[in-house]
């Protein structure tokens, strides 16, 4: 709004209808300290007044791995591509957890923060961004567990423990970013819609769980039946998890096509998410 010298005099113009593409990134940058503060708050409040503290970050993936190994590995006998079952499941769980945490936590951002959003202005996008970063801390801790397990299996080889880190490890940060943005984008769309139509909230919790079975968390893509393979590949998380497994363990279908597909889907979802979120944030206080 710099059409006339008169209007450019003002620092801020609050209007009913703003451009759809006015995303206020500069504002977000100005509030970066707040983002750091929120991350710190989440981390500290998580372990205050618990006995085990940050150890809780380990417990969930360890137990899930044990259960998966028992149910899917031993009882159902699903292939793990010749990898040690524990490592196979743990890589899947670690990366899937990060994605699903980002998605489910951002999908309730408006509802959970209605009271604070109703009282004070700050760029609303700070909140979901801080969730994604907070989860990164948790992801990092779980990654340590994975590395530890890899070391263990390296020095005490069991039958079929043929795994190695590949060159694809250099893409690791990029893969994490991709998961974060995909989870964020989907979460933003869902939270924006749930301010008005609450039905979606119920869908999210079990939807994410079901989606896990549509992703290559408990089975390798190579073991998927031919007629479902196409559908599983349509899931953008499949390419990411396969690449993740290929980078750390040397097995999985890592192609530039599958990653390229995930990147395109992620960018579309993220853009859509941010646009809808920005449109909703202006007036959601009145409807929630």
């Amino acid at each position: 709004m710099r059409s006339t010298p008169e209007t450019s005099d003002w620092d801020l113009v609050i209007k009913g209808h703003t451009s759809l593409f006015d995303l206020k990134f500069k504002d977000i940058w100005n509030y970066r300290d707040l983002l750091v503060m929120f991350v710190k708050r989440d981390f500290v409040s998580f372990y205050k007044q618990t006995i085990l503290g940050p150890l809780w970050f380990f417990i969930q993936p360890i137990f899930t791995t044990i259960v998966f190994t028992f149910v899917f590995g031993n009882l159902a006998g699903i292939s793990t591509d010749g990898l040690p079952q524990q490592l196979f499941y743990l890589t899947g769980i670690t990366s899937w957890n990060y994605f699903s945490d980002c998605l489910t936590k951002t999908s309730t951002v408006f509802k959970d923060n209605a009271s604070i959003f109703g009282k004070v202005y700050f760029p609303r996008l700070i909140m979901p961004l801080s969730i994604v970063v907070s989860n990164l801390v948790r992801f990092g801790v779980q990654l340590l567990l994975l590395l530890f397990m890899m070391l263990y299996f390296n020095f005490s080889p069991v039958k079929g423990s043929d795994f190695h880190i590949t060159y694809a490890i250099v893409f690791f940060p990029f893969l994490v970013l991709l998961m974060a943005l995909l989870g964020l984008g989907l979460g933003l769309i869902i939270t924006a819609i749930t301010t008005k139509y609450k039905d979606l909230t119920f869908l999210v919790t079990f939807g994410v769980q079901l989606l896990m079975y549509g992703t290559t968390v408990i089975y390798p893509l190579s073991a998927a039946p031919e007629k479902y393979k196409r559908i599983i590949e349509l899931n953008p998380m499949t390419g990411i998890i396969e690449a993740f497994r290929y980078a750390f363990l040397g097995r999985g279908e890592f192609t530039f096509w599958s990653i390229g597909y995930s990147v395109i889907i992620t960018l579309i979802v993220l853009l859509l998410g941010i646009l809808i979120f920005n449109k909703t944030e202006k007036n959601f206080v009145d409807t929630i």
């Binding site: 620092d11 009913g16 009282k119 007036n283 206080v285 009145d286």
Partner: peptide, 11 residues
């Protein structure tokens, strides 16, 4: 905290 329906505020 919430946006106006019509009109504007310049600050």
């Amino acid at each position: 905290v919430t946006g106006p329906t019509t009109g504007e505020i310049k600050v």
